[in-house]
Amino acid sequence: MSKLRYALYTGCTARESTPELLSSTMAVADKLGIELILLDEASCCGASHLQDFDEMLAYTLNARNICYAEKMGLKLVTICNTCQLNTAMTKHQLDKDPELKEKVNAKLAEVGLEYKGTSEVQHFLYALIQDYGLDKVREKVVTPLSDFNIAPFYGCHNIRPSELHEHSTGGENPYNPTSLDSLIEALEGNTVDYESKNKCCGFHVDLQAPQTSNALTGTALLDAIDNNADMIVTPCPLCQLNMDLKQHSAGKQLGRDIELPVLHMPQMVALALGCDEKSIGLKYNVTKATQFSK
């Protein structure tokens, strides 16, 4: 197999409040011999809020991001579910609606760009599974995670709407997703089966409806705790932030103590592959994963 190369769309969070996501992603890619080229020209995807304010602007900025992956002739790989949704949604709308594509391209032409629709858009989780292969990941494991019960938290925007993600996820069913479970198993961890694994963390209403957000985050965390999880693992930094940071306020609202480490998917893989401590970046997690401290 020739070396896998991707254009990495980091999104904002990985470059700001969750630097551990970017460093662990790069470390994992390095260990597996995957080349990730940073898409430094890219802008914010609008995080599913910009489109509420100005939909056309959101399409245009997302199309511009994809243009740069197209220029390199590479697949655009995301490490945030919401980046994945917004980028894939833009691609989907532009590819099916020539009129919209033309409108967006008229704007892009002003800055010398053209959206063609030639680059695929995929979350790193699914690139690992589909392009690299879990069997090969399994071979690279140096620290099996067999001592831990790991609760997969899929995050909405990678699995819903399923029609949009079908191709990039290889047909993941949002009512019974399995990809993250299989990854945990490939790293020899014990997967925790719990109802909340495909539910919403509430991140997107955290400012305007904190009670909704806390109730959803807290319920998912407690569900994992009640099913003997030692930690949660998620491919989405927004889920990670909400679940990691809001444990106290969610616990207060729901009347129970909540303490459970929440790891980024690449942090978990990096731990199993024996990447260095600095790139795994566990010090950036608010709820400390003490299991891994030496």
Binding site: S48, Q51, D52, F53, D54, E55, L85, C156, H157, R160, P161, S162, P174, Y175, K199, C200, G202, H204, V205, Q208, A209, T212, S213, L216
Partner: peptide, 30 residues
């Protein structure tokens, strides 16, 4: 109202008539 939608897309998945409710919620926002 629309600002309390959590953007989970559960409604899109659930609709047997494939109406895509969240798309309409975005339009209302706009």
């Amino acid at each position: 109202g629309v600002w309390d939608c959590v953007k989970c897309n559960e409604c899109v998945e659930a609709c047997p008539k494939e109406i895509n409710p969240i798309e309409k919620i975005t339009k209302l926002h706009n």
